[in-house]
Amino acid sequence: MKYILALFKKDLLLEFRHQYTFYGIVLYVASTIFVLYLAMGQPESQVWNGLFWMIQLFVCVNAVAKSFLQESRGRLLYFYSIAGSRDFILSKLLFNALLMALLSIVGWLLFSLLLGNPVQNGWRFMGVAVFGGFGLSLVFTFLSAIAARAQQNAALMAILGFPLIIPQLLLMMKLSNTAFSSVFQESLTQIVLLLAGLDFLVIVLAVILFPFLWKD
């Protein structure tokens, strides 16, 4: 636990010292949404929802990709020797989850600023967006570890990740669609539980499988 927090703090500190990466991603979000605005204007709610999740997906790939690709080989060896590989992956998962939660909120604000705001139930939508961003970040963090070990770029991550994430993405779209009307549906809790279960599964798998990625 101590190591996880220390490694998490290190990632956070790095982010504060090299703020350009964070602002770079925020700028990425802003410019894609601006391009979307130029292309689509203010679309209706179905399209809005679809676009929002697509942007979430691409932002996530770009934001999370660097988490392993940025670490040099020597530095990884150093982390590996001072802390266990499990602490390492958990700290990365935690950091990326927070980063993605933040970016989800930024994305939503920009979306409602530029593409209009068809959301009726703002709090629920924000909850779904943050929750969804959290799930995306977990899957892509682990995939970025795989891609980094295969010495590949973010393109491989997309190939590996997109088919894996489709079911989750569909569920999240279904979930966030409910925030466009004030009607409450019973099946929501079922989907939320399913997604939470999947998130938990990803964490467990990452903890079990990550040590095998590092053995050399």
Binding site: F142, I146, L160, L164, L198, L201, V202, L205, L209, F212
Partner: peptide, 9 residues
Amino acid sequence: VYNIFAFAM
């Protein structure tokens, strides 16, 4: 590793 992860997902 990917095979196991993908299958479980």
